[in-house]
Design a protein around this nucleic acid. Structure first.
Lengths: 104, 104
DNA sequence: ACGTTATGCAGGTAAATACCTGCATGTCAA
DNA sequence: TTGACATGCAGGTATTTACCTGCATAACGT
């Protein structure tokens, strides 16, 4: 997994909105996605390209249209690597901080 | 939760390394964290500031030193909002794609 | 074939980002 | 108090990013 691409892709509100749009209805075309975005088509293309490079979106050509599908796998990998790892700290964090504030 | 700050904070390899370093040993000082980084102290300060602004790191002053602690809460919120939401698609994605490739 | 529609590609600009150097402030220990 | 140590703050630069305009290509329907 390329954490860099995934997190950078998610670090933009337009791209997160694109994912939400695709979650509502999978397989939309570029034109359809643009309707919900309030920016030029070319900008949306760029955002979708970044999502695709991060493997968060997969595409299928269908005639002159390009259909976009969410790929949830990288999100799950993010969870495995960056959420679960820190889960066990949710209690020990408080412990560490408390000890520190009490003077070691 | 401020998804923007959290994802942007995570979208840099230096900052992810800082989180890993703190995961190994919580409560390290700026100087200690710098030893594992290969960049000027001021740059690390900037990265830690971004992590703190995203609420991924909390700090406690202790005399002239500043101790850093991981805060796993935003990571868990990311999971709730951006991973679980797309979990149910892990099967339906294949379904959608298959239908599409078969010609609707 | 022709016009319409959907997307691709080239490039240009303003803002944000990641790094740095240099100097200031605050704390500890002798 | 003084020197050493830990961090804070100001600013400067090169790269990346997010947006745009303009033109090119490809597919559909009549």
């Amino acid at each position: 997994m390329h954490a860099d691409k995934v997190f950078k892709a998610l670090g933009d509100p337009t791209r997160r909105k694109l994912l939400d749009l695709l979650c509502e209805r999978n397989g939309q075309t570029l034109g359809e996605l643009c309707e919900g975005l309030d920016m030029a088509r070319q900008s949306a293309t760029q955002h979708l390209g970044i999502l695709e490079a991060a493997n968060l979106v997969s595409t299928v050509r269908r005639g002159r249209a390009k259909l976009h599908f969410v790929n949830p796998v990288p999100l799950h990998e993010v969870y495995e690597r960056w959420v679960r790892k820190f889960e066990h700290q949710r209690l020990s964090l408080l412990h560490d901080l408390k000890k520190e504030l009490e003077g070691e």
